[in-house]
């Protein structure tokens, strides 16, 4: 487990914002989105489209780029910047075709021995009639299965919202990086409060109880690394953060790429077997 960026206890108590404030920050429009990261971190990024089955999905951006000269497959959930863009991208909530497109590109990456880098930022997989009809659950299940045995390195960066199964579908990986003010949760705090306490207004309490912040998840061993952010974290301020993340990715991808694919898959599986199980 990587502990290089574990905050010291002193730091934590002094300036740790409440979980709910982090949720709100993670959802801010002004934060960099997947395409901002992709544009800054990779050269010659080339978009590839289509799930080869029912269509394509702009809530998931996919393609090939160069990370410091090394070809990598990049996948990112993109919420959209303007209102029109948000609507076109379905607010970053992928349909089954989005997950299918991602899986197609993962398999392609495996064939060409390209590492996969995923940027997670979604309220969740889209809950709609057509999405159910096209097998929203089945594609997430398939994506998890595929990533369980994908014979190429997978590194995931949670850059904003990690919304439940729709986020996890791109986050079964060798190394999970979380941006300082991102979160990853089994359910939205509002949803949790509505179900448990019949009061969506208690989302603040739910956020606290769910232990969903990057810091919480680093502490419980789900996140491997945290990347610090300036406050506020906007696209204009992002350059040093992008440079920091790029450096970390180059190091991590380099180490993982040196591992033989069979061993890599075994190590990934061991990591998940050790994680979060009941020790009872």
């Amino acid at each position: 487990m990587n502990t290089e960026s574990r905050p010291t206890p002193g730091e934590e108590s002094a300036a740790t914002p409440a979980a709910w404030d982090i949720v709100l920050r993670a959802r801010l429009d002004t934060r960099p989105q997947a395409l901002d990261y992709i544009g800054a971190l990779f050269d010659a990024f080339t978009v590839l489209e289509g799930d080869r089955c029912t269509g394509t999905d702009s809530a998931v951006v996919g393609g090939i780029g160069l990370l410091s000269g090394r070809p990598v497959t990049v996948l990112g959930q993109q919420k959209g910047a303007t209102l029109d863009d948000k609507i076109a991208r379905n607010f970053g909530m992928p349909h089954p075709r989005g997950f299918r497109k991602a899986m197609r590109l993962m398999r392609q990456a495996e064939k060409f021995r390209r590492p996969v880098i995923c940027f997670v930022d979604t309220p969740g997989a889209y809950p709609g009639r057509e999405a159910e009809q096209r097998g929203q659950a089945a594609v997430i299940a398939e994506s998890l299965y595929l990533l369980s045995e994908l014979r190429t390195p997978v590194v995931t960066v949670v850059i904003g919202e990690g919304g439940s199964g729709g986020a996890l579908a791109l986050a079964l990986c060798d190394h999970l990086i979380m941006m300082e003010n991102s979160f990853f949760s089994v359910i939205s705090p509002e949803g949790c409060a509505a179900i448990l306490w019949k009061d969506a207004a208690r989302a603040r309490d739910a956020a606290q109880s769910l232990k969903l912040t990057a810091r919480d998840l680093h502490g419980s061993g789900f996140a491997d690394e945290i990347v610090p952010e300036p406050d506020p974290f906007t696209v204009a301020e992002a350059e040093p953060v992008f440079a920091d993340l790029k450096k970390r990715l180059i190091t991590r991808i380099g180490a993982l790429s040196a591992t033989e694919p069979g061993e890599l898959v075994e190590a990934r599986q061991r990591k998940y077997m050790k994680m979060g199980g009941s020790k009872a």
């Binding site: 299940a141 299965y145 369980s148 996890l168 990853f184 949760s185 998940y272 979060g276 199980g277």
Partner: peptide, 26 residues
Amino acid sequence: GARMQEGMFALSQMARTSVAVSRHSR
């Protein structure tokens, strides 16, 4: 579905069981 009172400990079981199914299938 995943049990929300266990947060990420519950969500991660989706990944863990997938790994277990894959190992069995292999």
